[in-house]
Nucleic acid binder design. Structure first.
Lengths: 245, 245
DNA sequence: GAGATACAGCGTACGAGATACAGAGTCCCC
DNA sequence: GGGGACTCTGTATCTCGTACGCTGTATCTC
C-alpha cells in the first residue's frame, strides 16, 4: 500500500502552499485562477473552460497555469468546491427545519451553476466549502442521539437528493429552452410517435392521459418538498427508534 | 417555435433507418457498433471508447462509423440505453414488492457498468430499454389510484435514488481500490490533518469519533434498503391519502 | 556583496482525438 | 446499361491538453 498524500490541488485549496524559499514571488494564486475559470463556466458553460481561455482571463500565458494546478482535472476539482456558496446559518434551528433549508439551498446553487452537475462528483468532498456544508448538517443533527456515522450518512443522502433534483429540473429547463427535445409536450409527442402499445402498455396509457403534456405534474417545488419530506420523515423515525432504545 | 424531430440516433435506436433506395446495403447496423463500444467501455472504461477503437473493434475504418452515428455524443447516448438490461418481470407482484426489486436492479446494473455513471443522463429517457424500465414501473403502480403524472414522478425519483446510491457505492469502491484517496480510513486521516476545529466543530467531532474510520457505517446494502423504504413509505402515504379522498 | 540555486513565466512543440472532405467503388432503379 | 445515390475509407485539419526547456529574478549561502 503506497503512502497517500493529499492531491496537490486539495492542499493548495487549503492554502497549504509550499512556502517558496528562492525565486520570485508568484504573481497569482489558485483562487484567482479558479475564480476566472468559474466566471468563464458561468458565461460559456463548461466547454468554454479551456486552459487557454482561463489563462487569458487572468492575463497570463497558458502554460503559466500549470505552476498552480497540475492538470485541468485538478482545476475542475477546485472549481467544484469554490463554486458553492456558504451553507445557510444554523441559528439554533431544529434539525428538521435547518436541513430542509440546507437541502433546498444545495439544490438551488446547483441550478444556478448547472455546469456543476456536468462535473459529477467522483470524489468525496475534501474542499473547505464542501466540508463546511457537511459540518453544518452534522451540527444540526447534534442533539438527535444519532451516531456519527449515521449523521454523515444522512448528510450524504440529502446531498444526493439535492443534486438529483437539480439535475432533473435542469434537464427540463434545457428541454424547455430548446435542447435536443424541445419540452415536455414535445417529449410526449415523440413518445406517442414511437411507442408500440403492446410492448409499452403502461407508458402508452400515461402518454394518452397527457402525463407529459403541458401542465403535467413533474418536478416542481411541491415535488421537491414532497420527496424531501419523505426522507426527513424517515430520519425522524430513525431518531425515535434510537431514543427508545 | 422550430419544428423538432427526434435526435437522429434516437430514431435509429428505434430502427427507424431511412430505407436506402440506391447504393450498396450498409454492412453494419447501429446495434453492432453500440455493442462494440459497450464491450470496450466494459473492458477499458469510458476513456477507452474512441471513435478509432470502436471502429477497429467492429473491423471498419474510423470514419465509417459516421454513417451510423453522426457524432460521438450520439454514440454515447445510444450506449447508455443499450447498456441497461431488461427490467425485472412484474409477475403480478404488488407495487411495493416490485418497485423494491426494480430499484435495486437499477442500482445493480449501474454498479456493474460504472461508466454509465460518468455518462450522466442529461436527457430524459428516450431509448427503448429506458422506456421499458419506465413502463414497468408505471404498470406496477397501475392499481394504486395515483394519477399518471404522479406515477411518472415516482418512477423518476426512484431512478434518481438508484443512481445516487450507485454513484456513492462506486466512489467508495474506487477509493478502496486506491483512487486519489485510498479509502475511508485515509479520508479520515486527511480530514484530521486539515480541519480547523473552530471552523468545523461538528466535523472535527465526527472525525474524532471515527465516523470515517474502518468499520464505520456508510453506504452498504442496509443503507440502501433503509433509504428506499423511506421513499416507499412516503409513496404508501400518498396512496392512502388519494384513496380516502 | 557575489555567486549559486530554485523557482516564476512562457514560447514552442508534440500528441491525441474528433471530424470535414473528397474520391473510389457499389448497387439499385429506370 | 447508364445515372446517381449511397457506402466505405484515407487524408487532412482543427482543437486541446500538456511536456520541455529557456530566460530572468529573487532569495539564500558564503
Amino acid at each position: 500500500m503506497a503512502e497517500r498524500r493529499l492531491p496537490p490541488v486539495v492542499a493548495r485549496m487549503w492554502g497549504r502552499e509550499t512556502s517558496a524559499r528562492h525565486g520570485p514571488r508568484p504573481s497569482l494564486d489558485l483562487g484567482r485562477i479558479v475564480d476566472a475559470a468559474i466566471r468563464i463556466a458561468d458565461r460559456d458553460g463548461l466547454e468554454g473552460v479551456k486552459m487557454s481561455s482561463v489563462a487569458s482571463e487572468v492575463g497570463m500565458a497558458t502554460m503559466s497555469l500549470y505552476r498552480y494546478v497540475g492538470s485541468k482535472d485538478e482545476l475542475l476539482i477546485a472549481m467544484a468546491d469554490a463554486a458553492a456558496p456558504e451553507p445557510p446559518a444554523l441559528d439554533g434551528r431544529a434539525w428538521r427545519d435547518y436541513l430542509t433549508d440546507w437541502t433546498r439551498a444545495n439544490r438551488d446553487f446547483l441550478l444556478g451553476r448547472p455546469w456543476l452537475l456536468a462535473l459529477g462528483q467522483h470524489t468525496p468532498p475534501a474542499g473547505p466549502r464542501a466540508l463546511r456544508w457537511l459540518d453544518r448538517a452534522l451540527a444540526a443533527l447534534a442533539g438527535t442521539g444519532l451516531g456519527p456515522g449515521e449523521r454523515v450518512n444522512i448528510a450524504t443522502t440529502l446531498t444526493g437528493y439535492a443534486s438529483q433534483q437539480a439535475a432533473l429540473a435542469h434537464a427540463l429547463n434545457v428541454a424547455a429552452a430548446g435542447g435536443p427535445i424541445a419540452g415536455l409536450a414535445e417529449y410526449g409527442d415523440i413518445l406517442a410517435e414511437v411507442l408500440d402499445p403492446a410492448t409499452y402498455p403502461a407508458l402508452t396509457e400515461a402518454v394518452g392521459a397527457n402525463a407529459f403534456g403541458a401542465g403535467a405534474e413533474w418536478i416542481d417545488d411541491a415535488d421537491f418538498t414532497f420527496g424531501l419530506d419523505l426522507l426527513l420523515d424517515g430520519i425522524q423515525a430513525l431518531i425515535d427508534r434510537r431514543r427508545e432504545h
